[in-house]
Design a protein around this nucleic acid. Structure first.
Lengths: 151, 151
DNA sequence: CTTGACCTTCCTGTGACTGGAAGGACTATG
DNA sequence: CATAGTCCTTCCAGTCACAGGAAGGTCAAG
């Protein structure tokens, strides 16, 4: 089975499959022509990775999960610990996004959205003051959540 | 005002401020010693950027918002359009994360999480099949031992 | 004069790929 | 057999929004 077939079967782009080999998640064989030759076990690993990535697990988490998957003697607690930590991170992100949504939603609602220049959204971003009306101020960005932006 | 003061006042790291100059979001002056010299207007722009980034706007969205902020004749509708689009994207992201959370939460609850190896989480990621009980083997024995984790 | 804190530029690395160029391999057709 | 087209290979660069660090200049205090 060559990479194109595997891509079709797993739904993963060929580029991604090569990348997963690069970083050591899979180790397909090679044919005499230099083409990668995938066993069924490789395809299953890739399908596993596709699902885990689809649930938002990072590559490193996937690596751990894959190792646990291959370890017949693993404790399910180890798997659950990874999943719970990931679940917690998802919760944090949802909370951050919800806070953003709330604030932004209020601002959008307050903005009449017509041809006139007055805009509560910009006023808020400017710190509650009008545009370019520069006086002294002590900015308070202390409370801003350090949000890592999604892809 | 030099970069350290600005960093303290805005809460933005000096690295970030330099980066914002690099990509043309701000254009501070320069002193005789080569140090950046920030006007109040620069500080206000940076505070604006900090808040906009805190609400999850991308750099390019920030660039647009900044341009609108400086345009006294802008229509508030233009600002609202950007905000609404961003709001929509946030909603999509929240929906995706919520779906992940839901699925993962079910799996975590189904997993007893003890020393035993049986794990619904891995079973699900494996596609409903058990671990490594995948049918065939390679026609060649070469590489069967495979799958060594690189550093 | 030395120390140490600050500033400068430049280069590299991050995560998880994606796009593209250059070139070899395979398949089908004339 | 030649050729066209599609697949495969490797390698390099780019993405986004910075962060880390090296090498070196500047400034105020002791």
């Amino acid at each position: 089975m060559i990479i194109g077939d595997v891509a079709e079967r797993t739904g993963l782009p060929a580029k991604t499959i090569r990348y997963y080999e690069d970083i050591g998640l899979i180790t397909p064989l090679r044919g005499d022509n230099g083409y990668r030759r995938f066993r069924e076990s490789d395809v299953h690993k890739l399908a596993f990775l596709g699902r885990a990535r689809g649930l938002g697990f990072s590559i490193e988490e996937c690596r751990d999960l894959l190792a646990l998957w291959e370890d017949r003697a693993r404790a399910s607690a180890d798997v659950r610990a990874i999943a719970e930590e990931h679940l917690r991170q998802i919760g944090v992100k949802i909370a951050e996004l919800s806070a953003m949504k709330e604030t932004l939603s209020e601002l959008v609602h307050a903005c009449h959205g017509d041809h006139r220049p007055d805009c509560p959204i910009l006023n808020d971003l400017a710190g509650g003051r009008g545009p370019l009306v520069c006086g002294d101020q002590a900015t308070s960005l202390e409370g801003v959540v350090g949000f890592t932006h999604p892809a």
